[in-house]
Amino acid sequence: MRSVGVEEELLLVDPRTGEPQALSTAVLAIAARRNEGRAHAFTKELQGQQLEFGTSPRTAMSDLAAEIERCRGEAARHAAEAGAAVVALATSPLPVAPALNDGRRYRWIREHFGLTALEQLTCGCHVHVSVGSDEEGVAVLDRIRPWLSVLLALSANSPFWQGHDSGYSSYRSRVWGRWPSAGPVELFGSADRYHQQVSDLVSTGVLQDEGMVYFDARLSHTYPTVEIRAADVCLDASTTVLVAILARALVDTAAREWREGEPPARHPIGLLRAAAWRAGRSGLDDELLHPLTMRPAPAERVVQALLGHVEAALDDNGDLAHAHKALADLMGGGTGAHVQRDLLRRYGTLRAVVAECVRRTQEGVG
Rank of each mutant, 00 (worst) to 15 (best):
Y347N: 12
S170N: 08
E67S: 07
L46Y: 05
G183C: 10
Y171G: 03
H128W: 06
G334E: 01
E135F: 02
S56K: 11
L118Y: 02
H221I: 14
A153Y: 03
E135S: 04
L314F: 09
R110W: 06
V233I: 14
L12F: 07
T293S: 15
T25L: 11
A65E: 01
Q21K: 12
A31I: 03
D142M: 10
A76Q: 11
S56T: 07
S170T: 11
E81Q: 10
A41K: 03
D342I: 00
G261C: 11
C71G: 02
V213P: 00
L327P: 00
V226C: 06
L242S: 06
P268S: 09
L271P: 01
G183Q: 07
Q49N: 08
V241T: 06
L330N: 02
R248D: 08
H126I: 03
P224V: 14
S169Q: 09
P298K: 10
W179Y: 10
S92G: 09
P263N: 10
P224I: 15
G283I: 13
R34H: 14
L343H: 02
A191S: 14
V27H: 01
A297K: 07
R33L: 14
E45Y: 03
S282G: 10
L148D: 02
W176Q: 03
P224R: 14
A84S: 13
R70V: 10
G336R: 03
D285Q: 12
R16L: 15
P180L: 09
A76N: 04
C357D: 00
S282A: 15
P224Q: 15
R295Y: 02
D342R: 15
T239F: 08
W161L: 13
A182T: 13
L343N: 00
G83T: 01
R34F: 11
T122K: 04
G280K: 05
L344S: 03
D63T: 13
A275N: 05
L121C: 04
G167E: 06
P264Y: 09
V138C: 11
